[in-house]
């Protein structure tokens, strides 16, 4: 299966471990990522914080170019990117806005392509197929699945899973043979784009999430977002220093866990490049 791929800035930057994990994992499932050539940044938090129109135009440009290039499905592994793309897609539902955006971005925005997040990607491949492809069930893993904000919010834009009590990631993790826990911070925010600019808030939020997962018996977190990974993995040492306690919570991308179950090595999946590699 070939699928359109919108990596977004993070995956080509400091979250390149996520991209490597995706390519390895999906490759093992015969999914080839066909990266769209002319992608630009989706505008991220900065655009929707400061310039509403721009926050629609940037993803609209990407969606329009993807549609121009014939991608019926566009896989955007970063939930912020995929939410932004879906926001543009939703905006295109209004013909007047669609025309205006098309003019701004110099390409015909149709808003017809399907936008997939990582979980949907696996759902597309099929839980049954995943199950049958498992070679090394990660039985020692008891995962707290962490959705963060934008996989399920805003619900009227992303239309994905139950926005209060999501379970789609658990379904996939369970299919691999790993255990999952019920916990309270599945959809609480990790501070996202405030990593650099408001570290206090990020550390506090990350601390709550990490400790709650541990309190509910998880030995690792599973995420499907590069931002969440940065705040929970890279910043974990800072969290430990700030709150004076050892957490040692490994943070996997969902694709890491799937890859491990398929028999790929930690190196192939870039897990060795995470900051917290063992408890």
């Amino acid at each position: 299966m070939n699928i359109g791929y919108y990596p977004g800035c993070a995956l080509h930057g400091s979250s390149n471990d996520y991209e490597q994990s995706l390519r390895a994992c999906l490759g093992a499932l015969d999914v080839q990522l066909d990266e769209m050539k002319d992608w630009i940044c989706c505008g991220a938090t900065a655009a929707h914080s400061l310039n509403h129109k721009l926050s629609l135009a940037l993803p609209a440009r990407n969606l329009a170019v993807a549609e121009r290039d014939g991608f019926k499905q566009l896989f955007a592994p970063c939930p912020l990117c995929s939410m932004q793309l879906l926001k543009a897609k939703k905006a295109a539902g209004d013909e007047r806005v669609r025309k205006e955006l098309s003019e701004i971005v110099e390409a015909d925005l149709r808003g017809e392509s399907e936008v997939l997040n990582l979980i949907q990607m696996f759902e597309k491949i099929g839980v049954a197929r995943l199950k049958s492809a498992v070679k090394a069930p990660p039985k020692s893993i008891t995962a707290a699945c962490y959705y963060g904000c934008l996989l399920t919010r805003p619900p009227d834009v992303v239309h994905f899973d139950d926005f209060e009590q999501p379970t789609s990631m658990e379904t996939i993790v369970a299919a691999l043979g790993a255990k999952t826990v019920e916990w309270n911070y599945k959809t609480e925010c990790c501070g996202a784009g405030m990593t650099m600019s408001n570290e206090d808030i990020v550390l506090e939020l990350a601390h709550k999430i990490l400790s709650n997962a541990a309190e509910h018996g998880a030995n690792c977190l599973v995420v499907a977002c590069p931002m969440c990974h940065v705040n929970l993995d890279m910043k974990q040492a800072a969290v430990e220093r700030r709150f004076g306690k050892k957490l040692g919570m490994v943070v996997y991308y969902l694709s890491d866990l799937v890859g491990l179950a398929l028999g790929l090595s930690a190196e192939q999946l870039s897990i060795n490049r995470h900051f917290v590699t063992q408890a």
Partner: peptide
């Protein structure tokens, strides 16, 4: 961890990006 990209990729057509920014300037 090979997470620092000293020479990152840039978008090919940066002209269009600039024009989009211009058109979206705060009204």
């Amino acid at each position: 961890r090979k997470k620092l990209h000293l020479i990152p990729g840039k978008a090919r057509d940066r002209g269009v990006v600039n024009r989009i920014f211009e058109r979206c300037a705060s009204e």
